[in-house]
Amino acid sequence: MSAETKKNQESALHLENVTMQFGGVVSVNNLTLDVPKGKIIALIGPNGAGKTTAFNCITGVYQPTNGLISFMSQPMVRTYPRGKDAKIYKGEHKDTYAGQPVLTPTPDQITQLGIARTFQNIRLWKSMTVFDNVLTAKHMRAKQNVFSAILRTNMKEEKRMREETMDLLKEQGLESFKDELATSLPYGLQRRLEIARALATNPKLLLLDEPAAGMNPQETFELADFVHEIRDKYDLTVFLIEHHMDLVMNISDYIYVIDFGSEISQGVPEVVQSDHKVIEAYLGIAED
């Protein structure tokens, strides 16, 4: 995929000059990347490179210090360094977005737009059953209000939500565990449940934060197929962070590599794999 063909495709998510600075530490530095619709894009990098911070900027957990994030060609997050941040700002493009309206949606508003995520260290609702975990994620799209919910005049909707939840669980092979506590599942299934829960919010873009972490080779192998499967079935775009190189090279259409917050390489898996900058970042520079 060359740069030209990429431009022709409609982009689902586009980051432009995104910088995230915590005090004097620049975690994400001037990151620009594009996630085209219907593709599986990976973001990789060594530990502490700023991958999860980038994810947190996209999902609204953090508000970036500077930059523009568009979703489905609509500006979603737009900030520039203001006040105290402006004085200590170390990044570039300081004035590119100055004066434009600042957009800092909260995570739930971003999910409402159609971006769902999973977490690096699984965050299931631990006192709830597998079924309730998925069902609760459907709450956002429900049309009820608190009175219709208390007086049970929304039974039709509730019934539909339950049916959809059951379908999702069946599809993930979790239906036999539906009344178990979410935290009593083995690790691999908890990851699957987290993905099922994310799918319950009817996303257009799915962000997976290290989906293979803690999985054994067999589970990792299955995960690759699984991600393709849900992408096709739900017409999703997938953007993932992953450490597991086999999986990344196998699964992704395009890869961005970052180190110390800045992009160091990008390209299709074969290109990235042989890029000496990437090898250096991961393995260190040869002494001689």
Binding site: T59, G60, V61, T106, P107, D108, Q109, T111, Q112, A116, R117, F119, R123, L124, W125, K126, S127, M128, D132, L135, T136, A137, K138, H139, M140, R141, A142, Q144, V146, A149, I150, R152, N154, E158, M161, R197, A198, A200, T201
Partner: peptide, 25 residues
């Protein structure tokens, strides 16, 4: 009800609830 489940989810994990579109405020 669905709201009750949303309340419980906030008790269990605020960050996850927010990420699943449940407005904390």
């Amino acid at each position: 009800s669905s709201y009750g489940r949303a309340f419980k989810s906030i008790r269990d994990d605020e960050i996850a609830s927010e990420a699943m579109g449940i407005s904390l405020s």
